[in-house]
Design a protein around this nucleic acid. Structure first.
Lengths: 192, 192
DNA sequence: TACTAAATGGAGCGACGTTCCGCTTTTCAG
DNA sequence: CTGAAAAGCGGAACGTCGCTCCATTTAGTA
């Protein structure tokens, strides 16, 4: 079995520089134009050609995961921490969902992309789920074991539901995802 | 004040025929390719040019509302009927939401379009809400008055929440919007 | 310095939405 | 019945976007 011992030659200096520049440009453009901003715009802002862009991020999902990797990681790591610190497992779950919601809500269009069935975003969807689903599952299981949650629901379904509810905020001030997510959690909670 | 008494000349026969043909073609294409199928495809299937398409349906939202007008109307009319027939107002609300959900879930991509903040679909969004929001509000108010619902929530928010939860079904068999909507309703319900 | 592999960039292709306007068809007054 | 005028039609054409391809440039190395 080939134990990933390959040289993994270090990237050329200019390539590394361009990648950083692209990441910064993308982060900036995402804020103003959302995660589905034109590639050309990002490449232009970074001062590189589109060919260079695609060399670094073959897929839009690659770019998005790279831009938000830190926050996804933070969210993943928050799970066990919250579980240890909170009064009850259910409270830990609630707080984790809060953090997850904040993340989605502050990134313009990210929630939309996450739920899109377009194959372009399949990888993004997969990445989020692979990383976060186990974390959410642990919290959910703890809450169930504690008897705080009776409803039968999978972590995946819960996360997708929360993600979906985060779509479209900003369009209409009368729609607040957090309120609905609170209702959803209330529905999850065992009677009494 | 000009009392809309204008002649409103009846459409030319061929124009009326083309409109019907386009509607039929669109309904068919929507089933196989979703509501965001290429305009050219619909026009081709109807055997007309794209210019003709745009003459009849200047915006995609116009087409979608025309295609689904009957079902939207049926959903709107079901409100009062259910309220009169059901055991409790909350049960009426639940059944109405069921019908609304069925409608959204069976139309490939309709829920996505409904929540999209793209200005293309703004009219669609408006049409749905103008027609259905009062109906949902009446059901919700009845349930609140009966004491079955305590949570403070607007009909608009509830409808958008349900609509959002309907997004992405079909992609993943493990995600069932109805289950989450049931949880949401449980969360709406007053304790006990 | 000279060589090579990595990296670049932007022209170009196909798909799509949308507009525009010369041509065809329907309608209806006479 | 007839012949304009009005209404409708079609599809070429333009702008935008995602993505690919490859001739050229450049960083690392001996």
């Amino acid at each position: 079995m080939p134990t990933e011992q390959e040289p993994a030659r270090t990237k050329r200096a200019d390539a590394a520089r361009n990648e950083k520049t692209l990441l910064a440009a993308a982060a900036e453009v995402f804020v103003s134009s959302g995660v589905d901003a034109p590639i050309r715009e990002i490449a232009a802002k970074a001062g590189v050609g589109v060919g260079t862009f695609y060399r670094h991020f073959p897929t839009r999902a690659d770019l998005i995961t790279a831009v938000y990797r830190h926050q996804i990681e933070a969210c993943a790591e928050a799970g066990p921490t919250l579980l240890a610190a909170a009064e009850t497992p259910f409270e830990a779950l609630r707080q984790w969902i809060d953090q997850f919601t904040d993340f989605l809500v502050t990134k313009h269009g990210l929630a939309d992309a996450l739920q899109s069935d377009s194959s372009t975003f399949a990888a993004l969807h997969t990445y989020f789920l692979d990383r976060l689903e186990p974390v959410c599952a642990a919290l959910l299981k703890a809450a169930i074991d504690a008897g705080d949650v009776q409803t039968e629901i999978s972590a995946l379904e819960l996360m997708r539901g929360v993600g979906n509810l985060c779509i479209g905020r900003g369009t209409d001030p009368r729609y607040d995802p957090r309120r609905l997510i609170a209702v959803l959690l209330k529905g999850l909670r065992a009677p009494l």
